[in-house]
Structures are given as structure tokens and as C-alpha cells.
């Protein structure tokens, strides 16, 4: 059973998740005209910057986050922004968009000069997230849990972060049981995706290094 406090916590997280979205004008650019490889790259950089800003705004709304040590706040965001971004992007691909917009977006990513070695695991990750058919509550809570991971580099007060993350894990576990009664392993599968995310982020760091060298 989900307690009143847990319901309230979920509501705050879901509302924050819904409230903070990429600005329409940035999102629209992705679907306009033809772009060269270089323009695609610049556009994706702009999207990524915008996504990080959205993630920070969402994180500021997580109860207790702003009471953490300021440098720990930065360490958590720095350690998780890329993972949170991949989670959010996967959700974009899981939505049914009009007029084959998903295809246009995929093409744009594929033609941005990013190597195939990275593109394949990225789209595989997106597919594995889409296959989970996560509810909005699950998406929002999983994103918050990713951000509030205590063992990121340079985090000093692990305990304070754990204290914020644990209630989220508890409520997510309950939400999973309620929403997927036929799948007792669902919660474990969601957490498994976080491990997959870490691997993807590792590839991402390598990809950026090779991009810079080019």
C-alpha cells in the first residue's frame, strides 16, 4: 500500500517532471528542413544543453535536493546529467509522434557525425526502455533515483544523498507492484536499466573524446 506521504512525494516528482520540458522553439528546430552534418551536430549540442537545463530545473524540485551541500548538488548533477538525458530521450522515442517525426529525429542523430559504434548501443538502449512501457510515475521516479545516486565522483556526504534516494526507491517499488501485478520482476528490470545506462554513459564519454580529437 502506498502511504499518503508517498503519494504526495510521487505527485511532486511527476509534476516537476511534466513541468520542465525542452522549449518548443528548440524542439521544433529538430524537425525543420535539411541540415548538413555540421549543422546537425550543432543542433544536437543545443538540444543537449537545453536538456541539461531542464534536468537541473527538475532536480531543484526534488524535495530536499536544495538542502544538500552546494558542491554535492553539482557533483550529483555532473555525474548523472548524461544518464538522465538518455532516459528522457528514450521517452521521446517511446511516444507516438505525428508524421514520422521519430524517423526524422533518428535520421538527424544518425547523420550528425556520431560513430556507428556509439549509435547502435544508444538506440538499443532506447528500444529496451520503450519495451518496458513505463508509466509517467515510473519515468519520473526513475529519473530522480538516477540523479540521486550517492556514489558519484566528488560527492562528500553520501548519507545525505542516500536519505533522499531511499524513499524514492521505496515508492517506485510499490508503484511497480501496483501497476505491473503480473510481472514481479518489473522493479528489478527497471533497476537493471540503470546499469545499462552506466555502460552507455561510458561509451558516451569515449565518443566525445574521439569527436574532440577529430
Amino acid at each position: 500500500e502506498i502511504t499518503k506521504e508517498q503519494k504526495a512525494l510521487t505527485k511532486v516528482i511527476v509534476e516537476a517532471y511534466n513541468r520542465h520540458q525542452i522549449p518548443q522553439d528548440v524542439a521544433k528546430k529538430l524537425l525543420q528542413d535539411q541540415y548538413s552534418v555540421e549543422e546537425n551536430f550543432l543542433l544536437l549540442t543545443e538540444m543537449a544543453t537545453s536538456q541539461v537545463q531542464v534536468i537541473v530545473e527538475f532536480t531543484k524540485s526534488i524535495p530536499g535536493f536544495l538542502s544538500l551541500d552546494h558542491e554535492d548538488q553539482i557533483a550529483l548533477l555532473k555525474g548523472s546529467a548524461v544518464e538522465a538525458m538518455f532516459l528522457r530521450s528514450a521517452q521521446v522515442f517511446s511516444k507516438k509522434m505525428p508524421n514520422g517525426h521519430n524517423g526524422i529525429l533518428e535520421e538527424r542523430i544518425r547523420k550528425s557525425g556520431i560513430s556507428e559504434e556509439f549509435i547502435t548501443p544508444m538506440f538499443n538502449f532506447y528500444k529496451s526502455i520503450i519495451g518496458l512501457h513505463m508509466s509517467l510515475e515510473e519515468q519520473a521516479l526513475l529519473t530522480a533515483i538516477t540523479i540521486l545516486t550517492p556514489d558519484r565522483p566528488y560527492v562528500k556526504d553520501h548519507q545525505a544523498v542516500e536519505k533522499l534516494q531511499e524513499p524514492m526507491l521505496d515508492v517506485l517499488r510499490k508503484v511497480c507492484v501496483l501497476q505491473h501485478p503480473q510481472e514481479p520482476q518489473y522493479f528489478a528490470r527497471l533497476l537493471g536499466r540503470l546499469t545499462e545506462l552506466r555502460t552507455l554513459t561510458h561509451y558516451h564519454a569515449e565518443m566525445l573524446t574521439s569527436w574532440r580529437m577529430n
Binding site: T45, E57, I74, L77, K78, A81, H204, A205, L208
Partner: peptide, 21 residues
Amino acid sequence: PASNLGLEDIIRKALMGNLEE
């Protein structure tokens, strides 16, 4: 680290609410 492409700057500014800077 090489992978960060100004990530920390974006985060610091967004945390302070100075997105336009």
C-alpha cells in the same frame, strides 16, 4: 574530464537560475 564539454558551467548557471548568461 574531456567528456564534459562545459557541463559543469551549464549546471552551475542553471542551479543559480541564470540561464540567459
